[in-house]
Design a protein around this nucleic acid. Structure first.
Lengths: 181, 181
DNA sequence: ACCTGAACACCGTTCAAGT
DNA sequence: ACCTGAACACCGTTCAAGT
Protein backbone atom coordinates (compact mmCIF):
# COMPACT_ATOMS: atom_id res chain seq x y z
CA UNK A 1 0.00 0.00 0.00
CA UNK A 2 1.26 3.43 -0.92
CA UNK A 3 2.24 5.69 1.96
CA UNK A 4 -0.53 8.24 1.37
CA UNK A 5 -3.10 5.45 1.05
CA UNK A 6 -1.93 3.91 4.30
CA UNK A 7 -2.27 7.27 6.02
CA UNK A 8 -5.86 7.65 4.81
CA UNK A 9 -6.66 4.09 5.80
CA UNK A 10 -5.38 4.62 9.32
CA UNK A 11 -7.12 7.91 9.74
CA UNK A 12 -10.40 6.47 8.50
CA UNK A 13 -10.17 3.60 10.94
CA UNK A 14 -9.40 5.87 13.89
CA UNK A 15 -12.27 8.19 13.00
CA UNK A 16 -14.63 5.28 12.47
CA UNK A 17 -13.70 3.93 15.89
CA UNK A 18 -14.75 7.19 17.50
CA UNK A 19 -17.89 7.64 15.43
CA UNK A 20 -19.10 4.08 15.95
CA UNK A 21 -18.35 4.18 19.65
CA UNK A 22 -20.47 7.29 19.78
CA UNK A 23 -23.34 6.52 17.39
CA UNK A 24 -23.29 2.75 17.11
CA UNK A 25 -22.83 0.44 14.15
CA UNK A 26 -25.12 2.50 11.93
CA UNK A 27 -23.07 5.69 12.23
CA UNK A 28 -23.02 7.82 9.09
CA UNK A 29 -20.26 6.77 6.69
CA UNK A 30 -20.39 10.19 5.08
CA UNK A 31 -19.75 11.76 8.45
CA UNK A 32 -16.80 9.45 9.06
CA UNK A 33 -15.20 10.42 5.75
CA UNK A 34 -15.83 14.08 6.51
CA UNK A 35 -14.34 13.90 9.99
CA UNK A 36 -11.33 12.00 8.62
CA UNK A 37 -10.76 14.75 6.01
CA UNK A 38 -11.01 12.20 3.25
CA UNK A 39 -13.18 12.00 0.15
CA UNK A 40 -16.22 9.75 0.37
CA UNK A 41 -14.89 7.65 -2.47
CA UNK A 42 -11.72 6.98 -0.51
CA UNK A 43 -13.70 5.47 2.31
CA UNK A 44 -15.46 3.18 -0.17
CA UNK A 45 -12.17 2.29 -1.81
CA UNK A 46 -10.70 1.06 1.46
CA UNK A 47 -13.91 -0.35 2.89
CA UNK A 48 -16.33 -1.34 0.12
CA UNK A 49 -19.09 -2.16 2.62
CA UNK A 50 -20.03 -1.16 6.13
CA UNK A 51 -19.24 -4.75 7.13
CA UNK A 52 -15.71 -4.38 5.79
CA UNK A 53 -15.20 -1.31 7.96
CA UNK A 54 -16.53 -3.08 11.01
CA UNK A 55 -14.46 -6.11 10.25
CA UNK A 56 -11.32 -3.98 10.34
CA UNK A 57 -12.54 -2.41 13.56
CA UNK A 58 -13.54 -5.63 15.31
CA UNK A 59 -11.06 -8.18 13.98
CA UNK A 60 -8.67 -7.76 16.90
CA UNK A 61 -11.46 -8.04 19.49
CA UNK A 62 -13.13 -11.01 17.81
CA UNK A 63 -9.84 -12.85 17.38
CA UNK A 64 -9.06 -12.23 21.03
CA UNK A 65 -12.46 -13.63 21.98
CA UNK A 66 -11.73 -16.75 19.96
CA UNK A 67 -8.29 -17.17 21.50
CA UNK A 68 -9.69 -16.62 24.97
CA UNK A 69 -12.04 -19.55 24.42
CA UNK A 70 -9.07 -21.71 23.47
CA UNK A 71 -7.18 -20.66 26.59
CA UNK A 72 -10.15 -21.33 28.84
CA UNK A 73 -10.53 -24.75 27.28
CA UNK A 74 -7.24 -25.91 28.76
CA UNK A 75 -7.29 -24.03 32.04
CA UNK A 76 -10.61 -23.70 33.84
CA UNK A 77 -13.28 -26.20 34.81
CA UNK A 78 -15.69 -26.70 31.89
CA UNK A 79 -18.67 -24.96 33.50
CA UNK A 80 -16.63 -22.03 34.80
CA UNK A 81 -14.88 -21.70 31.45
CA UNK A 82 -18.21 -21.57 29.63
CA UNK A 83 -19.79 -18.89 31.77
CA UNK A 84 -16.59 -16.84 31.93
CA UNK A 85 -16.39 -16.80 28.15
CA UNK A 86 -20.06 -15.96 27.85
CA UNK A 87 -19.52 -12.91 30.03
CA UNK A 88 -16.41 -11.93 28.07
CA UNK A 89 -18.38 -12.05 24.84
CA UNK A 90 -21.03 -9.85 26.34
CA UNK A 91 -18.41 -7.40 27.57
CA UNK A 92 -16.96 -7.11 24.06
CA UNK A 93 -20.41 -6.23 22.83
CA UNK A 94 -20.56 -3.18 25.02
CA UNK A 95 -17.78 -1.34 23.19
CA UNK A 96 -19.90 -0.68 20.11
CA UNK A 97 -23.67 -0.43 20.22
CA UNK A 98 -25.82 -2.23 17.71
CA UNK A 99 -22.99 -4.37 16.44
CA UNK A 100 -24.57 -7.74 17.21
CA UNK A 101 -27.31 -7.35 14.62
CA UNK A 102 -24.65 -7.03 11.94
CA UNK A 103 -22.83 -10.03 13.38
CA UNK A 104 -26.01 -12.10 13.38
CA UNK A 105 -26.62 -11.17 9.75
CA UNK A 106 -22.99 -12.02 8.92
CA UNK A 107 -23.46 -15.57 10.19
CA UNK A 108 -26.02 -16.11 7.44
CA UNK A 109 -24.09 -14.35 4.67
CA UNK A 110 -20.89 -16.08 3.51
CA UNK A 111 -20.03 -13.01 1.44
CA UNK A 112 -20.06 -10.66 4.41
CA UNK A 113 -16.65 -9.36 5.42
CA UNK A 114 -17.62 -10.26 8.99
CA UNK A 115 -18.59 -13.83 8.16
CA UNK A 116 -15.37 -15.62 9.10
CA UNK A 117 -14.75 -13.71 12.34
CA UNK A 118 -18.29 -14.46 13.45
CA UNK A 119 -18.35 -18.13 12.57
CA UNK A 120 -14.96 -18.49 14.28
CA UNK A 121 -16.37 -16.99 17.44
CA UNK A 122 -19.38 -19.27 17.20
CA UNK A 123 -17.13 -22.33 16.77
CA UNK A 124 -14.99 -21.33 19.71
CA UNK A 125 -18.08 -21.00 21.88
CA UNK A 126 -19.48 -24.26 20.58
CA UNK A 127 -16.34 -26.11 21.65
CA UNK A 128 -16.50 -24.69 25.18
CA UNK A 129 -20.14 -25.67 25.30
CA UNK A 130 -19.55 -29.21 24.05
CA UNK A 131 -16.79 -29.72 26.58
CA UNK A 132 -19.14 -28.75 29.41
CA UNK A 133 -21.92 -30.88 27.94
CA UNK A 134 -19.63 -33.91 27.73
CA UNK A 135 -19.08 -33.71 31.50
CA UNK A 136 -22.80 -33.18 32.12
CA UNK A 137 -22.10 -29.63 33.30
CA UNK A 138 -24.20 -27.82 30.69
CA UNK A 139 -27.67 -28.53 29.37
CA UNK A 140 -27.59 -30.81 26.36
CA UNK A 141 -30.33 -29.15 24.30
CA UNK A 142 -28.40 -26.13 23.03
CA UNK A 143 -25.65 -25.60 20.46
CA UNK A 144 -23.15 -22.95 19.45
CA UNK A 145 -25.73 -20.98 17.51
CA UNK A 146 -27.98 -20.84 20.58
CA UNK A 147 -25.05 -19.59 22.63
CA UNK A 148 -24.38 -16.87 20.06
CA UNK A 149 -28.08 -15.98 19.96
CA UNK A 150 -28.25 -15.59 23.74
CA UNK A 151 -25.15 -13.41 23.77
CA UNK A 152 -26.72 -11.29 21.04
CA UNK A 153 -30.01 -11.12 22.92
CA UNK A 154 -28.25 -9.83 26.03
CA UNK A 155 -26.26 -7.38 23.93
CA UNK A 156 -29.59 -6.07 22.64
CA UNK A 157 -30.74 -5.66 26.22
CA UNK A 158 -27.56 -3.72 26.96
CA UNK A 159 -28.21 -1.46 23.96
CA UNK A 160 -31.59 -0.33 25.29
CA UNK A 161 -31.35 2.52 27.80
CA UNK A 162 -34.48 1.21 29.52
CA UNK A 163 -32.79 -2.11 30.26
CA UNK A 164 -29.04 -1.60 30.32
CA UNK A 165 -28.92 -1.27 34.11
CA UNK A 166 -30.21 -4.84 34.38
CA UNK A 167 -28.07 -6.54 31.77
CA UNK A 168 -25.49 -7.96 34.17
CA UNK A 169 -28.18 -9.39 36.36
CA UNK A 170 -30.04 -10.93 33.43
CA UNK A 171 -26.78 -12.28 32.03
CA UNK A 172 -26.16 -14.10 35.28
CA UNK A 173 -29.59 -15.68 35.19
CA UNK A 174 -29.12 -16.85 31.62
CA UNK A 175 -25.57 -18.04 32.20
CA UNK A 176 -26.87 -20.15 35.06
CA UNK A 177 -29.65 -21.49 32.88
CA UNK A 178 -26.99 -22.78 30.48
CA UNK A 179 -25.66 -25.01 33.24
CA UNK A 180 -28.98 -26.46 34.40
CA UNK A 181 -30.01 -30.10 34.16
CA UNK B 1 -63.36 13.87 12.01
CA UNK B 2 -64.52 14.83 8.54
CA UNK B 3 -65.54 11.97 6.28
CA UNK B 4 -62.69 12.46 3.79
CA UNK B 5 -60.19 12.70 6.63
CA UNK B 6 -61.49 9.49 8.14
CA UNK B 7 -61.11 7.78 4.79
CA UNK B 8 -57.47 8.88 4.51
CA UNK B 9 -56.83 7.86 8.10
CA UNK B 10 -58.17 4.39 7.53
CA UNK B 11 -56.35 3.93 4.28
CA UNK B 12 -53.07 5.06 5.83
CA UNK B 13 -53.47 2.62 8.69
CA UNK B 14 -54.26 -0.29 6.38
CA UNK B 15 -51.30 0.50 4.15
CA UNK B 16 -49.01 0.95 7.14
CA UNK B 17 -50.08 -2.44 8.45
CA UNK B 18 -48.98 -4.06 5.21
CA UNK B 19 -45.75 -2.10 4.87
CA UNK B 20 -44.66 -2.65 8.47
CA UNK B 21 -45.55 -6.33 8.34
CA UNK B 22 -43.32 -6.52 5.27
CA UNK B 23 -40.41 -4.21 6.14
CA UNK B 24 -40.58 -3.93 9.91
CA UNK B 25 -41.00 -0.97 12.22
CA UNK B 26 -38.61 1.20 10.23
CA UNK B 27 -40.55 0.95 6.98
CA UNK B 28 -40.44 4.10 4.85
CA UNK B 29 -43.16 6.57 5.83
CA UNK B 30 -42.88 8.17 2.41
CA UNK B 31 -43.57 4.83 0.83
CA UNK B 32 -46.62 4.29 3.04
CA UNK B 33 -48.08 7.66 2.04
CA UNK B 34 -47.35 6.89 -1.60
CA UNK B 35 -48.97 3.45 -1.49
CA UNK B 36 -51.97 4.91 0.31
CA UNK B 37 -52.39 7.54 -2.45
CA UNK B 38 -52.14 10.28 0.11
CA UNK B 39 -49.89 13.32 0.41
CA UNK B 40 -46.92 13.00 2.73
CA UNK B 41 -48.23 15.90 4.81
CA UNK B 42 -51.48 14.03 5.37
CA UNK B 43 -49.63 11.14 6.93
CA UNK B 44 -47.85 13.56 9.27
CA UNK B 45 -51.13 15.31 10.09
CA UNK B 46 -52.73 12.08 11.25
CA UNK B 47 -49.61 10.57 12.75
CA UNK B 48 -47.15 13.25 13.82
CA UNK B 49 -44.49 10.67 14.73
CA UNK B 50 -43.63 7.13 13.74
CA UNK B 51 -44.54 6.14 17.30
CA UNK B 52 -48.02 7.60 16.83
CA UNK B 53 -48.50 5.45 13.75
CA UNK B 54 -47.31 2.35 15.54
CA UNK B 55 -49.46 3.17 18.52
CA UNK B 56 -52.53 3.18 16.28
CA UNK B 57 -51.36 -0.06 14.74
CA UNK B 58 -50.50 -1.85 17.99
CA UNK B 59 -53.01 -0.46 20.47
CA UNK B 60 -55.48 -3.30 19.98
CA UNK B 61 -52.79 -5.96 20.32
CA UNK B 62 -51.16 -4.36 23.35
CA UNK B 63 -54.48 -3.84 25.09
CA UNK B 64 -55.36 -7.44 24.43
CA UNK B 65 -52.03 -8.50 25.93
CA UNK B 66 -52.78 -6.48 29.05
CA UNK B 67 -56.28 -7.90 29.35
CA UNK B 68 -54.97 -11.41 28.82
CA UNK B 69 -52.69 -10.94 31.82
CA UNK B 70 -55.70 -9.91 33.90
CA UNK B 71 -57.66 -12.97 32.78
CA UNK B 72 -54.77 -15.31 33.53
CA UNK B 73 -54.45 -13.79 36.98
CA UNK B 74 -57.81 -15.14 38.02
CA UNK B 75 -57.80 -18.43 36.15
CA UNK B 76 -54.53 -20.30 35.90
CA UNK B 77 -51.97 -21.37 38.46
CA UNK B 78 -49.46 -18.53 39.05
CA UNK B 79 -46.50 -20.22 37.40
CA UNK B 80 -48.47 -21.46 34.40
CA UNK B 81 -50.12 -18.05 34.03
CA UNK B 82 -46.72 -16.34 34.01
CA UNK B 83 -45.12 -18.52 31.37
CA UNK B 84 -48.28 -18.57 29.24
CA UNK B 85 -48.38 -14.80 29.19
CA UNK B 86 -44.66 -14.61 28.48
CA UNK B 87 -45.18 -16.75 25.41
CA UNK B 88 -48.20 -14.71 24.34
CA UNK B 89 -46.14 -11.53 24.51
CA UNK B 90 -43.47 -13.12 22.39
CA UNK B 91 -46.07 -14.26 19.86
CA UNK B 92 -47.41 -10.71 19.53
CA UNK B 93 -43.89 -9.59 18.78
CA UNK B 94 -43.72 -11.77 15.74
CA UNK B 95 -46.39 -9.86 13.82
CA UNK B 96 -44.16 -6.84 13.22
CA UNK B 97 -40.38 -7.06 13.08
CA UNK B 98 -38.20 -4.62 14.97
CA UNK B 99 -41.06 -3.28 17.01
CA UNK B 100 -39.61 -4.09 20.42
CA UNK B 101 -36.78 -1.59 20.11
CA UNK B 102 -39.35 1.17 19.72
CA UNK B 103 -41.29 -0.22 22.65
CA UNK B 104 -38.19 -0.31 24.83
CA UNK B 105 -37.44 3.30 23.93
CA UNK B 106 -41.06 4.24 24.66
CA UNK B 107 -40.74 2.93 28.22
CA UNK B 108 -38.13 5.61 28.86
CA UNK B 109 -39.91 8.44 27.06
CA UNK B 110 -43.13 9.68 28.70
CA UNK B 111 -43.83 11.78 25.61
CA UNK B 112 -43.82 8.83 23.25
CA UNK B 113 -47.21 7.92 21.83
CA UNK B 114 -46.38 4.33 22.75
CA UNK B 115 -45.50 5.12 26.36
CA UNK B 116 -48.79 4.28 28.04
CA UNK B 117 -49.46 1.07 26.11
CA UNK B 118 -45.98 -0.16 26.96
CA UNK B 119 -45.99 0.71 30.64
CA UNK B 120 -49.44 -0.89 30.89
CA UNK B 121 -48.08 -4.10 29.41
CA UNK B 122 -45.14 -3.95 31.79
CA UNK B 123 -47.45 -3.46 34.79
CA UNK B 124 -49.65 -6.33 33.70
CA UNK B 125 -46.62 -8.60 33.46
CA UNK B 126 -45.28 -7.35 36.78
CA UNK B 127 -48.51 -8.34 38.52
CA UNK B 128 -48.40 -11.85 37.10
CA UNK B 129 -44.79 -12.08 38.18
CA UNK B 130 -45.47 -10.83 41.71
CA UNK B 131 -48.31 -13.27 42.11
CA UNK B 132 -46.01 -16.15 41.21
CA UNK B 133 -43.25 -14.79 43.44
CA UNK B 134 -45.63 -14.52 46.41
CA UNK B 135 -46.28 -18.26 46.18
CA UNK B 136 -42.58 -18.99 45.77
CA UNK B 137 -43.21 -20.14 42.19
CA UNK B 138 -40.97 -17.60 40.44
CA UNK B 139 -37.50 -16.39 41.26
CA UNK B 140 -37.56 -13.37 43.55
CA UNK B 141 -34.72 -11.39 41.99
CA UNK B 142 -36.50 -10.05 38.90
CA UNK B 143 -39.15 -7.40 38.30
CA UNK B 144 -41.55 -6.32 35.58
CA UNK B 145 -38.85 -4.46 33.68
CA UNK B 146 -36.69 -7.59 33.61
CA UNK B 147 -39.63 -9.54 32.27
CA UNK B 148 -40.14 -6.95 29.53
CA UNK B 149 -36.42 -6.95 28.74
CA UNK B 150 -36.35 -10.73 28.35
CA UNK B 151 -39.38 -10.67 26.08
CA UNK B 152 -37.67 -8.00 24.02
CA UNK B 153 -34.44 -9.97 23.93
CA UNK B 154 -36.25 -13.02 22.58
CA UNK B 155 -38.10 -10.85 20.09
CA UNK B 156 -34.70 -9.66 18.89
CA UNK B 157 -33.64 -13.30 18.50
CA UNK B 158 -36.79 -13.92 16.46
CA UNK B 159 -35.98 -10.94 14.23
CA UNK B 160 -32.59 -12.36 13.20
CA UNK B 161 -32.84 -14.86 10.33
CA UNK B 162 -29.81 -16.68 11.74
CA UNK B 163 -31.60 -17.38 15.01
CA UNK B 164 -35.34 -17.31 14.38
CA UNK B 165 -35.57 -21.09 14.04
CA UNK B 166 -34.39 -21.41 17.65
CA UNK B 167 -36.49 -18.74 19.28
CA UNK B 168 -39.18 -21.08 20.61
CA UNK B 169 -36.61 -23.35 22.13
CA UNK B 170 -34.70 -20.48 23.73
CA UNK B 171 -37.95 -18.98 24.98
CA UNK B 172 -38.74 -22.22 26.77
CA UNK B 173 -35.35 -22.22 28.45
CA UNK B 174 -35.74 -18.64 29.62
CA UNK B 175 -39.35 -19.13 30.71
CA UNK B 176 -38.19 -22.03 32.85
CA UNK B 177 -35.39 -19.93 34.27
CA UNK B 178 -38.01 -17.46 35.49
CA UNK B 179 -39.51 -20.19 37.66
CA UNK B 180 -36.28 -21.45 39.21
CA UNK B 181 -35.34 -21.20 42.87
C1' DA C 1 -60.74 21.79 8.19
C1' DC C 2 -58.06 19.28 5.59
C1' DC C 3 -54.84 18.09 1.76
C1' DT C 4 -50.73 18.54 -1.26
C1' DG C 5 -46.13 18.46 -2.70
C1' DA C 6 -42.06 21.32 -3.00
C1' DA C 7 -38.17 22.43 -0.11
C1' DC C 8 -34.55 21.38 3.07
C1' DA C 9 -31.18 18.69 5.17
C1' DC C 10 -29.68 14.54 5.49
C1' DC C 11 -28.36 9.42 3.83
C1' DG C 12 -25.69 5.28 0.90
C1' DT C 13 -23.51 4.23 -3.36
C1' DT C 14 -21.32 4.90 -7.84
C1' DC C 15 -18.24 6.76 -11.06
C1' DA C 16 -16.08 10.21 -14.30
C1' DA C 17 -12.47 13.27 -13.79
C1' DG C 18 -8.34 14.47 -11.84
C1' DT C 19 -3.23 13.90 -9.71
C1' DA D 1 -2.30 3.87 -7.97
C1' DC D 2 -4.99 6.57 -5.56
C1' DC D 3 -8.09 10.49 -4.48
C1' DT D 4 -12.12 13.62 -5.06
C1' DG D 5 -16.69 15.21 -5.06
C1' DA D 6 -20.65 15.62 -8.05
C1' DA D 7 -24.59 12.84 -9.30
C1' DC D 8 -28.33 9.77 -8.35
C1' DA D 9 -31.84 7.79 -5.74
C1' DC D 10 -33.47 7.52 -1.64
C1' DC D 11 -34.89 9.20 3.42
C1' DG D 12 -37.60 12.20 7.47
C1' DT D 13 -39.68 16.51 8.48
C1' DT D 14 -41.72 21.07 7.74
C1' DC D 15 -44.63 24.38 5.81
C1' DA D 16 -46.60 27.67 2.28
C1' DA D 17 -50.14 27.27 -0.88
C1' DG D 18 -54.31 25.47 -2.21
C1' DT D 19 -59.48 23.53 -1.76
Amino acid sequence: MRADAKKNYDRLLATAREAIAEHGADASLRDIARRANVGLGTLYRHFPTREALLEALLRANLDELTRQAERLETSDAPDVALTSWFRAGLAFTRTYGGVVSLMAAALEDPDSALHKSCTDVRSAGARLLQRAQAKGLARADIDGTDLFALMGALAWVGDQPAFSRRVDHLAEIIANALLER
